[in-house]
Measured scan of single mutants.
Amino acid sequence: MSIQHFRVALIPFFAAFCLPVFAHPETLVKVKDAEDQLGARVGYIELDLNSGKILESFRPEERFPMMSTFKVLLCGAVLSRVDAGQEQLGRRIHYSQNDLVEYSPVTEKHLTDGMTVRELCSAAITMSDNTAANLLLTTIGGPKELTAFLHNMGDHVTRLDRWEPELNEAIPNDERDTTMPAAMATTLRKLLTGELLTLASRQQLIDWMEADKVAGPLLRSALPAGWFIADKSGAGERGSRGIIAALGPDGKPSRIVVIYTTGSQATMDERNRQIAEIGASLIKHW
């Protein structure tokens, strides 16, 4: 067993022997301040990774656009098919120029040779490549099948209805392509620590998230040296922004954090800054 596999296998073990965790309302004060600064709703939840206990939450059962955070769930569904012998990570998928959609920095470079399922998941999570996500959605049967996968996990809230990039439209009061912070946090925890996926697939999923290259201005910008984070960000229309993450000190994750916002007129930089400040408060009061 590799060191990384050992780390993920012992996530519940280490967490069980940690000192009790206590909620700190100071972080919620910052979440509410972010709402004021952005002029928009902000949803927040913080779960203990081992027990699933909610440590703090704000608007945990209000719907927010998922945006690209759905790509972690998508690759979880792909990995479940791999575990069941219905898919192979090494299978190569070929596609054409007509398949390319807006923001496809990886797939646009491989029109000639195609990409493997493993490479597509890596591109979808680490670079948020939209064509990679659409190609992977095709392998599982489309958005409705991802929703069905989530329902089978016990998540009857999260739903995907459309493809990239239309799913980022974020129309107010439109339930399409949305989740709730509580539902997303619980589902992410199941994917990373539950028995739904094999140990190898859980490790692969967290490795992809740990290698995320496009979430630097968010929670990662607030992390002290030595902290662990595996995350996936999302951005959408109407001032929408979000991030889902597993993080913790001492090089291992111990909490799940989900943050979503929508309806702001603020710039992307300002949305990023507010999420980073929430992260800084979380870490300060850990």
Rank of each mutant, 00 (worst) to 15 (best):
A211H: 15
K53S: 14
G248N: 14
E270W: 15
A183R: 13
V72C: 11
A230S: 10
T186D: 15
D212C: 14
N130E: 01
D212H: 09
E56K: 07
T27E: 03
L89E: 05
Y44L: 05
I171D: 15
L47A: 11
L150V: 14
L74V: 12
N130M: 01
I244W: 00
P65H: 07
G154K: 11
I125C: 08
V257S: 09
V257D: 00
V101T: 14
L197Q: 04
D269M: 05
L199K: 04
L205R: 00
M180P: 04
Y260A: 03
A182F: 14
V82N: 10
F58S: 10
M209S: 02
R41H: 15
N50V: 07
A185N: 00
S281A: 12
V72H: 02
Q274I: 09
L137V: 10
R189W: 14
L136R: 00
D83V: 09
R241L: 14
G141I: 15
R41G: 09
V82R: 07
E87K: 04
D212M: 03
G239V: 01
K213R: 04
T116I: 05
G194C: 09
L28N: 12
V157C: 05
E195K: 05
A235V: 07
G154V: 04
Q37G: 05
D231Y: 10
R159L: 08
S51K: 03
D113M: 04
C75D: 02
E195S: 13
T131E: 03
I229D: 01
G52V: 08
H24G: 08
M67R: 01
E237T: 13
T147D: 05
W163D: 10
Q97C: 06
R238V: 09
D177P: 00
E62W: 03
A148M: 03
L89P: 12
E210S: 10
L247P: 01
L28C: 06
P253C: 04
R59Y: 13
V31K: 00
A200C: 15
F228A: 11
E237R: 13
L55R: 14
W208P: 01
P143E: 07
E175I: 12
S104L: 01
L192S: 07
E195T: 13
L192N: 03
E175H: 13
G142T: 06
I45V: 09
H156A: 10
S254V: 06
D99I: 04
E56G: 04
G154C: 04
L223N: 12
F64V: 09
K284E: 09
L55P: 02
S122P: 03
E237G: 12
D250E: 03
A34Y: 06
H151M: 07
D33P: 01
E119V: 02
A266N: 04
D48N: 03
V257H: 02
L150D: 02
L247Y: 04
A77T: 06
D48M: 04
G251Q: 07
L150C: 14
Y95E: 01
R202I: 15
N134E: 02
H156V: 12
R91T: 11
N168V: 09
L192P: 00
L160E: 02
D269S: 14
A124S: 07
W208K: 01
K144W: 07
V258M: 04
P65C: 04
T107Q: 02
W227I: 01
A148S: 06
H110S: 13
T138F: 14
I283R: 14
A40V: 06
D174L: 11
P224S: 08
C75I: 09
S281K: 07
A235F: 02
N50P: 07
G226W: 12
A246V: 12
S254L: 07
E210C: 07
P105L: 08
A266Q: 04
A215M: 15
V82S: 07
K252Y: 05
E102D: 06
L188N: 03
D161A: 06
T267W: 07
N134V: 09
A215V: 15
W208T: 03
M268P: 14
L28E: 06
I243A: 15
E169H: 09
D231W: 03
W208V: 03
E210Y: 14
G142D: 14
V214D: 02
P165E: 06
E26K: 10
K144R: 05
R176V: 13
T193K: 15
L47Y: 05
W227M: 03
L49I: 15
M115I: 05
A266I: 03
C121D: 01
V117E: 03
K109F: 14
T69F: 01
E56Q: 04
G52S: 11
E195D: 12
E277Y: 13
E210D: 13
G263A: 08
A215H: 15
I206E: 05
E26C: 12
Q204T: 04
T69C: 09
I244Y: 02
I93S: 05
N173I: 07
K71W: 00
G85D: 09
T187P: 01
L223I: 15
T126R: 08
E210M: 13
Q88N: 12
N50L: 10
R255M: 04
K144M: 04
G194T: 09
I278L: 14
D207Y: 06
Q88M: 11
A84S: 14
S128N: 01
S96M: 10
H24F: 09
R241S: 10
D207G: 10
K32P: 01
R189C: 11
K30I: 07
N98Y: 10
E166P: 09
H110G: 13
D212W: 03
K144S: 09
F149S: 14
R162C: 13
D36W: 13
A34V: 10
G279K: 01
R63H: 07
A34F: 09
I93Q: 14
E26M: 15
L199E: 06
L223E: 02
L167H: 02
A246C: 09
L188W: 12
P181M: 02
Y95R: 02
K53Y: 15
R91P: 01
M268Y: 09
E108A: 15
L196W: 13
A183P: 08
E164M: 00
I275A: 03
A182W: 05
Q37P: 07
L199P: 08
Q274R: 09
N130T: 02
S51E: 11
S221L: 04
E46I: 14
I278C: 14
A215Q: 08
A133W: 01
I171A: 15
V101G: 06
S122T: 11
L218P: 08
G263M: 07
T116Q: 07
Q37H: 08
L79F: 06
M184W: 00
I259K: 00
M127R: 12
P253F: 03
H151D: 04
M184T: 03
E102F: 04
P253D: 12
C75A: 06
E175G: 09
A133E: 00
L191I: 08
I140D: 02
A246Y: 05
A235S: 07
L100H: 07
D99L: 11
R63F: 06
D36P: 13
G239W: 01
G114F: 12
Q274G: 07
E102Y: 11
A245H: 00
G76F: 07
T193Q: 14
P105R: 06
D36K: 15
S233L: 02
S233K: 00
K284W: 12
H94M: 05
S51H: 07
M115Y: 08
W163T: 12
D269Q: 10
R81G: 05
A266Y: 03
M66E: 02
G114N: 12
I275G: 01
L219P: 05
E270F: 03
E175Y: 11
I243H: 03
A133Y: 01
E237H: 14
H156C: 11
I206K: 12
A34M: 12
A222D: 15
V101I: 12
C75R: 01
D161T: 11
